[in-house]
Write a protein that binds this DNA or RNA. Structure first.
Lengths: 123, 123, 123, 123
DNA sequence: GTGGTCTAGACCACT
DNA sequence: GTGGTCTAGACCACG
């Protein structure tokens, strides 16, 4: 796992997001063990406390669970994992649609803009 | 002008954004006078320093200009104002496309999701 | 505010609890400002990070809110504050009743024991 | 014996507590043999080290004793077993009374709350 | 080896 | 001055 840190946003949030994306793309599956706090800290060239913070928040969101002395694991609640991808997508899309409407674009225009952007990506 | 502040993100940035959106939707036009720092501060129930900061940054981006003793005005550079809308849209869309791809969605799916979301909005 | 730290339990949890008790006993009321992180750290002879952690968790529980650059305040949600006392009491009592039943005491005995203990306190 | 582990509190303490409760409710009597460390570990789906630790501490508190090659047994000191129940009850009650007073409840109120809670339990 | 907590000290952006 | 984040380094209990 590699992360290009944004420098502006809290690192622990970026770690959380990266892990969530790994789950969304099924690179991380239920029950998978995450690297230990120290390992991950070394991988990311970051202080262990920062990783700890990220793991803690993930656990609070019930995306991971920890077993004393064993490590941190992706939850076995498959439903949770499925809904995670959906939730992230919905949040992202509604944010996007809101913002773009605030700029005064109409429905048809928006579709057009997105298509354009996607084609540009393909190149 | 009313803003629902997020409290988590810098207030001055939220003010800047709101003003830019007013410009994008043509509620604010070239040469329009902005409320004075104090007026705006009172309207938004915010510290004058915060408004000051927002105005300052807007001027640095050459979206506004100030005339001593007269106040702060939207720039007369029409080109600037036009490109503003486009820039904001592009930035938003590329951000969106990047993020949604990171979630593992394919091109066709993305269009579908956006359409769905737009239809939901219409209701 | 003074706290006698337990040494066994996390300090930040003990700080949180102390603040909640201040609220329950109405020593802290809606909108009251808490000492700044640094002040409180000095008062309690504790590292600022530890106080920070306590404040953060309190905010997550919506018992406090923070205003950027202004400080941390008790929530204005009176309902929340009222229910806080009730919640704490209920949690405590149900815990107690559960535990004491697990020891095999019967209803009448329990009342008796509590009364005894209260009389002892009075002395 | 079944235990629903809390995962937040040390497992070995939870095992100790469960055994003590079995004694308090007379499900375990003087001289009774406890399951071997390995058996118990399998029953509770727990690392044998953890059970070992629990048994060790129980022995340190002279609640059990071990005979080499024979296993671990509840002490024959009937006095000890009787006082165990009393001790646990006293500790629990004084803790409860302390806490509830810290919430600002008065003596009469406390009795009332406990009664209410007990009635609710009966239903 | 594992996570959890804490101290010390620092830097930053915001008000 | 305020909260928020981070690093460095340490200690602890647990498995």
């Amino acid at each position: 796992m590699k992360i290009e840190f944004d420098e502006k946003r809290p690192i622990y949030l970026q770690i959380m997001k990266a892990i969530k994306q790994e789950i969304a793309t099924a690179n991380l599956k239920k029950g998978d063990k995450l690297p230990s706090v120290r390992e991950m800290a070394e991988i990311l060239k970051v202080n262990p406390n920062t990783v700890q913070r990220a793991y803690q928040e993930l656990e609070r969101e019930q995306i991971t669970y920890t077993q004393r002395g064993m490590g941190t694991f992706i939850t076995n609640d498959v439903q949770k994992l499925k809904s995670l991808k959906k939730e992230m997508a919905i949040e992202l899309v509604t944010f996007f649609v809101n913002e773009i409407k605030n700029l005064g674009f109409k429905t048809e225009e928006i579709i057009e803009i997105v298509k354009e952007s996607l084609e540009r990506e393909v190149k």
